[in-house]
Design a protein around this nucleic acid. Structure first.
Lengths: 162, 162
DNA sequence: GGTGAAAAACACGATAA
DNA sequence: TTATCGTGTTTTTCACC
């Protein structure tokens, strides 16, 4: 499904999403009690939110360190040409590159912003060589090595609804 | 819990994590069949991975659009002073700001990189005023408005182990 | 929306290899 | 460390109101 239709979200949906986006291990019963709905109603809404695409997916957030990914870099990439085909080519490359956790196409002096996770600087070097330096359409890029991941994740700021 | 001890991860753990970080709705049975373990073993390992902190949390990834968060900005922030106290103060402010989805303390010309999600540019303006312009320790910041979120999420590149 | 029953998934202990 | 079995519990799914 990807039913992007006129999904009106009410206050209950927001309160469910607030909890669900923080912890999918919560039993529906807990949420139901907190917001004053039945368990079935909460689960019905969760299903609806999944089917409508509001909930993209339910995933586990892993700790990079113990998995050997100690280095996070923010990379600003400037392209030479920006034709639709060029952009699409670069897009695909980023989607295919496992080291690229996130990729944004942006306005401003740079064209793309990447969040790259690698095991060490050697791996980062290999990544840039393979993905950026060898690309004749990459005019330049600047690297910011992360000293601390102050805040991470994909959480959204949900306001309550009246 | 937070047992960061000598948790050696083997090939089974990696294969479990690969699937679990993509979809926590998969029944343990499915994973068990795929990797050739019993259901109980998979569940035991998941518990161990949670307790040891390799799995930080299990969350729902939401779609920003239907929730009224149509604008994503990448913000590069340059601070005036960088004493421990100054950094800590800014850190806390970022953690408290709901609009800030991600915050990295980095090397390079900028000091902090923010991923900011807001409903529109007016909200972004309010955010910068409140959080950056009013802060006497913020020397300058540059904004990159996102035209496309090419790749998002908190997924890690897990290689298989021998 | 709610209720309740059926089904599925999970948790845990015991045993054995 | 596994697998398997058995049991009880929890959670989800679904038909029906």
């Amino acid at each position: 499904m990807h039913n992007d239709d006129s999904t009106e979200l009410d206050s209950f949906d927001y309160r469910i999403l607030q909890r669900w986006q923080a912890d999918t291990r919560l039993p529906a019963k807990t949420i139901a009690d907190e917001i004053g709905l039945s368990v079935a109603a909460v689960q019905r809404r969760l299903k609806r939110l999944r089917d409508s695409g509001v909930i993209r997916r339910e995933v586990a957030e892993l700790e990079p360190r113990p998995l050997g990914l100690a280095v996070t870099c923010v990379v600003m990439v400037d392209l030479e040409r920006e034709s639709a085909a060029d952009l699409e080519r670069f897009r695909r490359k980023m989607l295919a590159a496992a080291e690229v956790q996130q990729c944004y196409y942006v306005t401003g002096q740079s064209d793309f912003v990447l969040i790259v996770l690698v095991s060490d600087m050697e791996a980062y070097d290999a990544f840039t060589r393979r993905t950026l330096l060898d690309d004749t359409n990459v005019r330049s890029f600047t690297t910011h090595v992360t000293l601390e991941r102050v805040k991470t994740g994909a959480g959204l700021a949900l306001r309550d609804k009246p």
